[in-house]
């Protein structure tokens, strides 16, 4: 995928609210959220537990319809589609990298990677080739026949990444991707997510408590109580800071 000079909006949330109801009471999880995520950018959602980060991700991925507002993926409404169409879109467009890995223990590493390709309608031969390539890329091609339960947390997270790479997902959604990993494995995943955004021109949205991600993010969105409390652009700040330093010098 070539990088265009114009920013392409991958995900857009406009005025999105989400309320859950229980015993006749409404619990707001998101309130009037506006959020845009671009191809080639890494967007980091920060905030305490219960701040609405995961809800925002599930709404953006098409799992939980908002109570109010609109969600678009590449300019088209995400909700209101036929369920089959939404599933196919998800299978072909979105890669998921979660703290719980989202792997199926009954399947081998290679089968886990190939499954989403199958759901996306990729033929068996092509799925095998793309799976092999994706596993090689994340360095676990030697573990293709193992079961996820036999692998370390870091290796398991690589399976999830390989799955996202295999389908060539335009959007990567990651929820606490480094939470179960040791420092070294965590760094490796962070660098990889950054590479996905910068080199592979993916739209990467990460919800995390891990502040190590901050320097790599194009945008840091802070959430509190289901609302967006602040936005900063660390890379722009760095560039700006660099220009100021140069001018002063």
């Amino acid at each position: 995928m070539t990088r265009s000079s114009k920013r392409i909006t991958a995900i857009r949330l406009r005025g999105v609210s989400k309320r859950y109801e229980s015993n006749g009471r409404a619990y707001p999880a998101l309130t009037d959220v506006d959020f845009e995520a671009y191809r080639g950018n890494l967007h980091l959602l920060l905030g305490p537990s219960g701040s609405g980060k995961t809800t925002l991700l599930t709404v953006a991925a098409g799992f939980v319809a908002p109570t109010a507002g609109s969600v678009e993926i590449f300019g088209e409404a995400l909700y209101g589609r036929d369920p089959g169409e939404l599933q196919l879109l998800r299978a072909a467009t979105i890669g998921f990298i979660f703290q719980s890995f989202l792997l199926i223990d009954g399947l081998s590493v290679a089968e886990n990677v190939a499954l989403q390709l199958r759901f996306a309608g990729v033929t068996n031969g092509a799925a095998r080739r793309r799976t092999r390539e994706a596993l090689e890329r994340v360095g676990i091609d030697g573990l293709a026949e193992k079961r996820p339960a036999e692998l370390s947390h870091g290796e398991r997270q690589r399976i999830a990444i390989a799955r996202a790479l295999a389908i060539d997902a335009d959007v990567l959604i990651a929820d606490e991707p480094t939470a179960s990993l040791d420092a070294e494995q965590g760094e490796s995943i962070i660098r990889f997510l950054h590479t996905c955004a910068t080199d592979l021109y993916k739209c990467v949205i990460v919800a995390s408590h891990d502040l190590r991600l901050r320097p790599y993010a194009d945008e840091v969105v802070t959430m509190v109580g289901g609302r967006i409390a602040g936005r900063v652009h660390p890379q722009e700040e760095r560039q700006h800071s660099g220009i100021v330093h140069a001018a002063v010098a």
């Binding site: 991925a61 799992f63 369920p83 089959g84 599933q87 196919l88 879109l89 998800r90 299978a91 072909a92 979105i94 998921f96 989202l102 792997l103 199926i104 499954l115 989403q116 759901f119 996306a120 799955r163």
Partner: peptide, 10 residues
């Protein structure tokens, strides 16, 4: 649930 997440058809 995972199968649904990664786009499994019904």
């Amino acid at each position: 649930a995972v199968m649904k997440i990664i786009g499994s058809p019904v």
